[in-house]
């Protein structure tokens, strides 16, 4: 059955199930860095170039462990909020998320666009390139207090 635009819109208004379409999610393969979304979006710890990569790795671990959702900063400059990632049943703090913090990965999964945001369910980490953005050479540790001073 071919749906007319009006009929399709009516079905959506009623909450009726529509046939599978692009609006239900799109399979993509994307390469980018697993980032700490709080520090990236808030800017409280520094500019976007400083709160990624090796400079921000320690803080990214703390943030993920504390429940902050991770994102994938794609090569297209878009941030994809990771809802789930292969091997973890949480959007933060799982072992996979912690192991991949600051890593550049190629991910295969489903993209959902909602409310102007990108949500990604990573079904497979195709390639883990490791930490490739060695920006600690430029920025040091961001923020410096991410590595606590040992108590005397």
């Amino acid at each position: 059955m071919k749906l007319t635009p009006i009929f399709a819109a009516s079905m959506l208004a009623l909450g009726l199930a529509a046939p599978a379409s692009a609006s239900e999610g799109e399979r993509i393969q994307i390469t980018g860095e697993i980032i700490d979304t709080w520090c990236y979006f808030s800017g409280v710890m520094g500019g976007p170039d400083a709160v990624v990569g090796s400079a921000h790795h320690t803080c990214a671990l703390w943030c993920s462990a504390g429940g902050i959702p991770v994102g994938l900063l794609g090569e297209d400059g878009e941030v994809y909020m990771v809802l789930k990632i292969e091997g973890d049943d949480q959007n933060a703090s799982g072992d996979t998320n912690l192991n991949l913090a600051s890593h550049e990965i190629t991910a295969d999964g489903m993209l959902y666009k909602r409310d102007g945001l990108n949500y990604l369910v990573v079904e497979k980490v195709v390639t883990d390139h490791g930490i490739t953005n060695l920006n600690h050479e430029d920025y040091g540790v961001v923020p410096g207090f991410a590595i606590p001073e040992p108590k005397k």
Partner: peptide
């Protein structure tokens, strides 16, 4: 159609 906000219709359902 009036019930179906274009802003809500043009997006993915929750997965």
């Amino acid at each position: 159609l009036a019930l179906c906000s274009p802003a809500l219709a043009d997006q993915s359902p929750l997965p």
